[in-house]
Nucleic acid binder design. Structure first.
Length: 730
DNA sequence: GTAGGGTTAG
């Protein structure tokens, strides 16, 4: 095991105090080493400040056997003592020799009034104060001309020679480097400085600024190259360097590299300050390692750190991404008890998090609190809130907020416009959407509708059954040069299909393929739903299109309609098709296939076979639940055909139980869902009429829409009347 | 943007 000092932050107590640290040079050329992660997954320490939090994540895997945990937990300072006493040196180990052992730890901590050693340096990196540059005007002109110089290396070199007849001072070089706004130029200027900077050697600040430019251009390999150069040349890496490298890795999704540099910091004796630390918290958060984030957070807190709004924003984003409401409450509680006032970004992140955790009411009161605190919402705040109200179908709140936005002249950008349009689609506000859409087109707005805006409009017309208008919008897109994306086509095809215009839908599909759209599972699912919807005579046409997008689905359909095909053959084909599909598409595929079988008179056992397979492959995990007083059939994620198939099977099995005089619960209930989503509307009412036709004793539950309940006695007498035999005999 | 960290869309 290679001991890494940062591991001590996570590992059980024994690893930090009993392992002899062995220092290894970081091999910058080596590929990422995900093998180091399991160590980071070691068991988190007890968390006294976090007792109330129950995260939905499973606990981390057990500690690797090499890092033994003992029953007693030493204090944080004990755990970190070897680290703080052996590593706090100016010298960069890695730059000297790879195997020099650190000196023996000096004894103890003598001054009890001093704070304990921490994982986190309490002091921010100090910035030197610059003398005001007397020649700022000249410099500005200079950097503008360099900014406008051609990118071509030879031409830029000539421009540099002309701009600096004498070697620039360090301050002037820094000013220019900061203002180039192009990473190739910044790098070239930096290299030029190496030979033209006169006496003054390149220091960490110049490296840091160059790295920042490379980071903006997402050139992480070059950032690491510069970092290695610093190590080779003996230029010490400071907190600014590390935070820049770590965020550069993060921006390129090279999280393993970010972690490796963080570990290297401790190994070389640089203790992170809160800027670097919160950058690293975000790295672990984006890796989904929430336990590790909390461990790091608590260790720093135990060392006396009062997190700032940025750190809380990182935590809020993390809990939001996990939909972890308890975590969000924890963040709010921590800020309150520490007296940290949330800033606008923290509010925005928390609102977004509340939305992801499905808490529209709390989002609303948080927004009220924010405004009451005197903060003014920006585009991001409003986008988050509008999205939440739209998803929750909170028409009144959405419209009220919209009114406030207009009367307060709160800022709008095109993302907010598009979010408002999507909200209108969710709420069915056709007229309002049309007004917004026209507003976007006004030249003084500075916002032109893009393909998101058009798609939202197509969606609105689609759910309102206005196929002609939706089709006109596609024409308009093509005319005005707004290239439709796959979502625009999918929504339009869906809309035309629902209107029964299958031929037009297929023509739109052919257009999309001609214009380079590569069908995804969502588009295939849309075509598949058209197979279920269409008339007998139209089926071949739809299958011909679908075959281009997903031949395996078509093979399966052709197999399903043949009487002689066995269950095993179906299963084989179905499994293959499912394996090819994305996880989110699997249940819709199965639902649609059941609808196809039922609507087109396929052999009668097929729908049941597919439902059975869907259950085996866990596409319908909560279909049946039984408690002692109630048995529930949950049809919420099923299509109409699938729901009917499941219902018939359920009744059949319950009838058997009645016949065999098994122990039955007091109630039977069916849940179709309230049908708040515009595509799922109708399952409840369709079911109500089906139950009525069957004279089934299920009654609408007034307290819960989409819920039907029958008592045991009523159910038994219905079964004994022989009524369900109409379909259970099939 | 003034050497470094956190927030917007099927």
């Amino acid at each position: 095991m290679v001991f890494s000092p940062a591991m001590a932050l996570f590992a059980g107590p024994a690893s930090a105090s009993t392992c002899t640290p062995t220092f290894h040079l970081l091999d910058l050329q080596s590929p990422s080493s995900p093998r180091s992660f399991p160590f980071l997954l070691s068991k988190p320490s007890p968390r006294p400040t976090f007792l109330c939090h129950s995260s939905p994540t499973k606990p981390s895997p057990p500690t690797p056997s090499s890092a033994k945990t003992e029953s007693t937990t030493p204090s944080l300072s004990d755990q970190l003592r070897p680290l703080s006493l052996t590593l706090l040196k100016d010298k960069d180990y890695a730059s000297s020799t790879s195997h020099s052992l650190p000196p023996k730890p000096k004894p103890t901590w003598v001054n009890p009034s001093k704070p304990k050693p921490s994982v986190l340096s309490p002091h921010r990196h100090r910035r030197p104060t610059y003398s005001l540059n007397p020649d700022l005007r000249h410099l500005s002109l200079l950097s503008r001309s360099l900014r406008q110089a051609p990118d071509d290396p030879a031409a830029f070199a000539a421009a540099l020679t002309e701009a600096f007849p004498h070697p620039p001072s360090r301050e002037n070089a820094l000013f220019v480097l900061n203002s180039l706004r192009s990473w190739p130029k910044a790098l070239q200027f930096f290299d030029w400085l190496k030979t033209h900077a006169g006496e003054s050697p390149l220091d960490a600040i110049l490296y840091n600024v160059t790295m920042k430019s490379l980071r903006a251009g997402r050139q992480h390999d070059l950032v690491e190259h510069l970092a290695q150069e610093m190590i080779d040349r003996g230029v010490p890496l400071d907190n600014v360097t590390y935070s820049t490298i770590i965020t550069s890795a993060k921006r390129c999704s090279r999280f393993d590299r970010a972690v490796e540099w963080f570990e290297r910091m401790y190994r070389t004796g640089v203790i992170p300050d809160e800027v670097t630390y919160s950058a690293v918290l975000d790295v672990y958060a984006q890796l989904g390692k929430r336990e590790e984030v909390m461990t790091l957070y608590e260790r720093a807190r135990a060392g006396g750190w009062t997190p700032d709004p940025v750190a809380f924003s990182v935590l809020a984003k993390m809990f939001g991404a996990a939909g972890d409401y308890d975590g969000i409450q924890y963040v709010l509680q921590e800020m309150k008890s520490l007296g940290v006032k949330p800033d606008l970004v923290v509010y925005n992140t928390l609102l977004e998090a509340m939305g992801k955790a499905g808490k529209p009411g709390l989002a609303r009161s948080l927004f009220d609190e924010m405004v009451a605190a005197g903060l003014s919402p920006n585009e991001k705040t409003l986008t988050a809130l509008i999205k939440i109200y739209g998803k929750a179908r909170w028409n009144r709140d959405a419209l009220e907020l919209w009114e406030r936005m207009r009367s307060n002249k709160w800022p709008m950008d095109f993302i907010l416009y598009n979010t408002l349009l999507s909200m209108c689609a969710d709420l069915g506000l056709e007229g309002e959407a049309e007004k917004l859409f026209e507003d976007m087109k006004r030249p003084e707005r500075g916002t032109r509708p893009d393909n998101w805006s058009y798609t939202a409009m197509i969606n609105i017309y689609g759910s309102g059954g206005k196929a002609e208008k939706a089709l006109e919008l596609l024409e308009e897109m093509l005319e005005t040069g707004v290239e439709p994306n796959i979502m625009s086509y999918t929504c339009l095809i869906q809309c035309l299909g629902k209107a029964g215009r299958i031929g037009d839908a297929m023509r739109v599909f052919e257009t999309s393929v001609e214009r380079g759209v590569i069908p995804d599972d969502r588009l295939c699912g849309c075509l598949l739903s058209l197979v279920a919807l269409c008339q007998e005579g139209e089926m071949e046409m739809v299958l011909t299109s679908l075959e281009k997008a997903n031949p395996r689905l078509v093979e399966l359909i052709k197999m399903l309609r043949k009487e002689e095909v066995s269950f095993n053959e179906v299963q084989e084909k179905f499994r293959g098709m499912l394996n090819d599909a994305t996880v989110e598409a699997r249940r819709p595929f199965c639902n649609c296939l059941i609808d196809v079988c039922r609507n087109h008179g396929f052999p009668s056992q097929r729908a049941n076979q597919l439902l059975h397979l869907g259950t085996i492959y866990r596409l319908y995990p909560h279909l049946h639940t039984k408690s002692s007083d109630e048995w529930l059939l949950n049809l919420r994620s099923l299509s109409f055909g699938a729901a009917n198939t499941a219902f018939e099977e359920w009744i059949k099995s319950l009838s058997d139980s009645v016949e065999k005089k098994e122990v039955l619960p007091q109630y039977f209930s069916i849940n179709t869902g309230a049908g708040t989503h515009r595509f799922s509307q109708g399952l409840a009412s369709a079911f109500a009429s089906r139950l009525e036709k069957l004279a089934a004793p299920f009654r609408r539950n007034e307290e819960m829409s989409g819920n039907f309940v029958a008592s045991r006695e009523d159910f038994i007498s219905w079964v004994q009347s022989g009524a369900p035999a109409v379909f259970t005999a099939l």
